[in-house]
Design a protein around this nucleic acid. Structure first.
Lengths: 229, 229
DNA sequence: AAAATAGTGTCTCTGAGACATTATTGA
DNA sequence: TCAATAATGTCTCAGAGACACTATTTT
């Protein structure tokens, strides 16, 4: 068959989690060129016989020991402008969005000198490697938008959570506040959003809150959606 | 620098248009192996110094003479499962969604034995090359979903159109009917959707309908959205 | 008891859905 | 005049937003 141009295919992951009521993104400091010393999204070359989603999981696992069940991964977009990577070969990157509840502290991996969770506001304010500022911006917008019309917010919560926890996810990701009782009415009135566990949260002040879990068959669509203030 | 696995990167385009009140997709019959003789989405290898979006435009132009202004192109998703292309090299495809108003009849291009517009129902019922059935399904779902919460529907309309034309876009893509007056109220009441041209449609029976054009700065978000029946 | 938090109820207003009425054209 | 189509108005109901009230716990 005819010759075809050879490309390098990488994956980059926008991993988001909530820590101390603040939205954080996982960044690694690059050990090698190009952009040595700069902070970047975790990622790397896809292997020849590896599925793209597997590559994203692998790169994430190399920085931060998380099992596949601890997070939700969805494809974000592919970035392939010529020159987006200064190296001579053409590099196309398939970006992924990963969401999880209080993901563990990262462990410096193979390629990275250092890795840590950054508050997204700080991450956006510093110079990132490649076009990762754009990828991060796109990932944040995707996450914010999907909270509106899907039950994605439960991905940021542990297996059992209170409605207060879930509301804090919205408030943290959107940066706005929501009326407590209207939120409650909306969530409980939506089929396929949460299920009552029958148990109650302990160790907090005030009346104990009911514990819920994400309804089975996640990924439900909200009709009508839950709109941002 | 370290060696990296070499991939082939292709683009595939789900081009949708409305002809005779039916949603159509552009397919080409493959001239060469693999899948010779099968119908497939238009697409091909990205050139080494070519932007991905430019490659999608080029492949589309090779089948169907359309200028960039005649259609709206947006990235759909990237398909990269090992084995999705039977050839020995690993092929990753960046899929695009192209929408336009009554796009012209295709001209058989370089790679294709034949090219034509197919009603989407028929296209879904026949065996397509590669994973193009999946890509087409994803493209249709994306188009249907985006009609709900954006002003994307105007992409299916010519430069000037009546509200009847616009409503037919929704009805054709969604396969449902919408109340005429409620639709009118919603569209006209949404800032940034359509602009009155001050002129009227001619050559139809009954009272002439006002002509509108898509509002400048397209891509507006509908808040709240226009929901499917 | 007081503070804190959870859970529930109520009022209002916007907007969607159903459908009726009026307006303007061609046959 | 009639048929066809466009444009506009009205009624009702669901749901969002604002906010009040009750319930249950810790300090």
């Amino acid at each position: 068959m005819a010759a075809y141009p050879a490309f390098a295919v990488t994956v980059d992951v926008v991993a988001l989690t909530i820590r101390d009521e603040v939205l954080h993104v996982l960044l690694v400091r690059r050990g090698g060129e190009p952009f040595a010393g700069r902070w970047a999204l975790p990622g790397g070359f896809t292997r020849v016989e590896e599925d793209l989603e597997d590559a994203a999981h692998r790169e994430l696992a190399e920085e931060c020991r998380v099992t596949r069940d601890d997070l939700r991964l969805e494809q974000l977009r592919t970035y392939g402008a010529p020159g987006r990577d200064p190296r001579p070969e053409r590099v196309v990157s398939v970006a992924w969005l990963a969401l999880g509840a209080h993901l563990p502290e990262p462990t410096a991996g193979t390629d990275a000198a250092e890795a840590r969770w950054w508050p997204v506001e700080e991450a956006l304010a510093m110079p990132l490697a490649f076009d990762h500022h754009q990828i991060l911006t796109d990932g944040l917008e995707r996450a914010r938008a999907k909270l509106e019309y899907t039950t994605l917010a439960t991905s940021f919560c542990p297996r059992e959570f209170t409605l207060r926890d879930l509301r804090h996810v919205y408030e943290t990701v959107w940066g706005s506040t929501l009326d407590r009782s209207n939120f409650q009415r909306k969530v409980l009135g939506t089929e396929g959003f949460v299920e009552d566990t029958g148990r109650y949260a302990e160790g907090r002040r005030g009346r104990p809150a009911r514990l819920y879990r994400a309804a089975a068959g996640e990924g439900t669509v909200l009709h009508p959606p839950l709109l941002r203030g």
